[in-house]
Simulated scan of single mutants.
Amino acid sequence: MPWTAADVPDQSGRIALVTGASSGIGLETAAVLARRGATVVLACRDLTRARAAAERIGGRTELLELDLASLESVRAAAEQARERYGRLDLLINNAGVMATPRRTTADGFELQFGTNHLGHFAFTGLVLELLRDVPGSRVVVLGSSAHRLARRGVDFADLQSERGYNRVQAYAQSKLANLMFMYSLLRRLTAADVRTTALAAHPGFSHTELTRHVPAVLQGVERIAIAPFAQPAARGALCPLRAATDPGAMGGHYYGPDGPFEVRGWPVLKSAAVPAHDEAAQQRLWTVSEELTGVRYLS
């Protein structure tokens, strides 16, 4: 039997923080958690859109302003979260950008690497104290099957794509970094003997706003060859929901759709590409991420 939203256990009394929850996968993930009784914190850059999302979701929803492309915003949001909440049960690192023209964050990082990886790396470290002593707490990282395109691993010689920029490869590298972060974080959580664990998921190809920056020629290919096979965002959200709530899910599990090429389908266990499991590269990425963000934790 497929795993569906009906399999999400009762979440009453739990607090879940979902980044990028104003639309797409994040919104659908937050909506299910709220329906199952959780207090859901919508951590979003645009509070106007977040308020509209909260009205649509209903239940116990709260807003937190968070722009992952600004370390100042990340620190301010983490401070607010620590002031407001005595704990977090779930942190779902969902927000992201895809295939943007070359731009930089407020701190000078290439936008996709800076937002998708460094922003979440910093925010997770700054709120981890809210999770680490909570039984059953989880950090869920949103990956993408596109991480497989980064076949040579993370380009540490040109992390910010200053020597050359390919928007698809930059996205692939950022999503590979997400998975490497999850495995690194899990190893550190286990060594620290805390109650939090880390997992990952990817939603397949879902109808969301994420592809709005894809070049026009690729959008044409998408509309003709891929879009007919895409799935609704609500179906894609089942993958992070399973990682976040399935009692049988374990640290290091990575969920994706069960259909051909992982484009669509029901959430099942998947294997990340080989570069994601390179522990030496994981350690190097962790060290560089600490240096770039100034956030150090679980050494």
Score class of each variant (00 low, 15 high):
Pro257Cys: 03
Arg56His: 12
Arg56Asn: 09
Leu111Phe: 04
Phe123Gln: 03
Phe109Arg: 10
Ala157Trp: 01
Leu33Gly: 07
Gly37Leu: 04
Ala5Thr: 06
Glu28Thr: 02
Pro203Asn: 04
Leu238Pro: 08
Thr4Ser: 15
Leu33Phe: 08
Thr48Leu: 14
Leu142Ala: 00
Pro260Phe: 14
Glu62Ala: 05
Gln80Pro: 00
Glu79Thr: 15
Ser145Cys: 10
Val141Gln: 10
Val168His: 13
Ala273Phe: 03
Asn166Cys: 05
Tyr254Trp: 05
Leu218Val: 14
Asn166Leu: 04
Ala16Pro: 06
Gly37Ile: 01
Gly143Leu: 09
Pro232Thr: 06
Met98Gly: 00
Ile224Phe: 13
Leu218Gly: 07
Gly108Val: 10
Leu27His: 14
Arg187Gly: 14
Tyr85Lys: 08
Arg195Glu: 04
Arg14Trp: 11
Leu159Arg: 05
Phe123Ile: 03
Ala249Phe: 03
Glu79His: 15
Val97Ile: 14
Ala273Leu: 04
Glu290Gly: 13
Arg223Met: 12
Ser22Trp: 09
Gly20Ala: 07
Thr190Trp: 00
Pro240Gly: 07
Leu33Ile: 14
Leu88Gly: 09
Arg163Val: 06
Gly256Phe: 05
Val217Asn: 10
Ala34Pro: 04
Thr105Gly: 05
Leu241Gln: 01
Met1Phe: 08
Thr29Trp: 06
His120Lys: 09
Val32Pro: 04
Tyr255His: 09
Tyr183Met: 02
Val41Cys: 08
Pro9Cys: 08
Ala243Cys: 09
Glu262Tyr: 11
Gly251Asp: 10
Val40Thr: 13
Arg82Pro: 13
Val168Lys: 10
Gln80Leu: 15
Phe205Ala: 13
Gln112Pro: 01
Trp266Tyr: 12
Gln112Ile: 02
His117Gly: 00
Ala95Ser: 10
Asp258Trp: 02
Ser23Cys: 00
Pro2Arg: 12
Arg235Asp: 15
Arg188Ala: 11
Val221Glu: 04
Val134Leu: 02
Ala99Tyr: 10
Arg223Gly: 07
Pro101His: 12
Phe123Trp: 13
Glu209Ile: 02
Arg82His: 03
Ile224Gln: 07
Gly248Pro: 07
Leu238Ser: 12
Thr124Gly: 07
